[in-house]
Design a protein around this nucleic acid. Structure first.
Lengths: 234, 234
DNA sequence: CTGACGGGTGTACATCGTACGCTTTCGCGC
DNA sequence: GCGCGAAAGCGTACGATGTACACCCGTCAG
């Protein structure tokens, strides 16, 4: 039902979110306040609350809009054709993701402060997970590999699976839809495998994940060192 | 009475910072406002500005206090004794760092929002760098390895070396001291090597760093997969 | 005694997120 | 056409936050 014409077409969630993304791109994330955003949309601040439940929801939605630009699967390449092709597939996806994130520099910081796993985030994780599973990696290995892709020097991993990211995690109803588990068979397979291995455990063994990632990196580094690796010439 | 007794000993920078860390540990980082912190110190909010230049400086200082708990070098182990011992040394340092960060869960998020490279941060990076250099790794390889320890699934790396993290990076004078380059010979060696390889370039080649990290991980993962790796039994 | 200075005070302002209630507009069954 | 209920937008108001600015007071060097 097309909105009948008035002075200004009515706002919608995506209109608001895209305007926020645009604002952040142009003036940085700290310029994205409800008032500034409303002003840019020619509307009073409180009008926005008809489309996002609060600012957290706005930020969640902005990230969803960015993630929507990812290209998690290249449908032209059948993943099961060549079982050894998964590294290239993963490389392609991550490099394309990187390109998108670089176009929205603020997204990096915002992603790290998100405490909700929105459907878009889960869908992206599912897509990457499927690349590994489709390549024949076990759910077990895939599980830890997904963790590895987030570990870093500071001594923590960004808790992709468990949720206690921010303290209160206000239970105000999100405006975005709730994810349904069956949409994410890959993630589910991982979770099932993990809980079979550690019955009764809730969440992942972060300590193990950290050591796993660390050893993987140190092994790889030692191998490069032993083979006298050097930067390619210009 | 040399420090003549008054109702309360005067504040110092570290007093303020440690109180802030305590507050964050107890009630979460969002509880750390200038007012709440001042209240906890029995002082009026504006009094804090005699010890920190603004809130960014407060957060920088809090991180410095956390980093001060890291144990970057174990002096009992001579790093040059066994040239193949560097992986263990790195492992020890990172696991101890991880322990500290886990005691201050807010630190993870705050570190990621810092835009300044404070002396404490640089000192920590220097210490890790020295472990690799001391193990015989080339400055070239060490350089990229330091970047690797920060790359992740989302398509960005956390720009450890170059500084354009936040936009304006207010040039108000920080209350903390300015770092002097000669204190960081390891980082310096890396920078020198890098600029010799890419004359005229400013900053690191983030694109290269990302691909380097990605390939390192994918190689390691493929190797584990080929050897039919599985989680150790409980 | 005096004057500078470092630490602490008090007031004031702009900005932020958002609760609450009102008005306008739109689409639809009558 | 009419009325009505829901959706969309408006206006006011409140409490919190970071911090600029002017001031006050106790200490100490001269």
């Amino acid at each position: 039902m097309p909105p009948s014409p008035r002075t200004r077409p009515p706002l919608h969630r995506v209109t608001v979110l895209d305007a926020a993304v645009e604002l952040a791109d142009a003036e940085g994330i700290e310029a994205v306040s409800m008032r500034r955003l409303a002003e840019r949309l020619g509307v009073v601040p409180m009008a926005l609350y008809k489309h996002v439940s609060d600012k957290e929801d706005l930020l969640d939605g902005m990230i969803d809009r960015v993630i929507a630009q990812f290209q998690p699967g290249d449908p032209s390449a059948d993943p099961s054709a060549d079982p050894s092709a998964w590294p290239d597939a993963v490389r392609r996806v991550l490099l394309s993701t990187r390109e998108v994130v670089q176009r929205h520099p603020w997204a990096r910081r915002v992603i790290e402060t998100r405490t909700h796993r929105t459907p878009a985030v889960l869908a992206y994780m599912e897509a990457v997970t499927q690349l590994f599973l489709g390549g024949g990696l076990s759910p077990d290995l895939t599980h830890h590999v997904m963790h590895v892709l987030g570990n870093r020097i500071w001594g923590f991993s960004p808790e992709l699976f468990n949720d206690p990211g921010g303290r209160p995690a206000s239970d105000r109803p999100r405006t975005s839809g709730q994810p349904v588990p069956s949409d994410f068979p890959g993630i589910l397979a991982i979770a099932a495998d993990a809980s079979a291995r550690r019955p009764g455990a809730t969440g992942c063994d972060e300590e193990f994940e950290f050591r796993f990632a660390l050893d993987l990196l140190l092994d790889g580094i030692a191998r490069l060192h032993a083979s006298e690796w050097a930067s390619p010439p210009l």
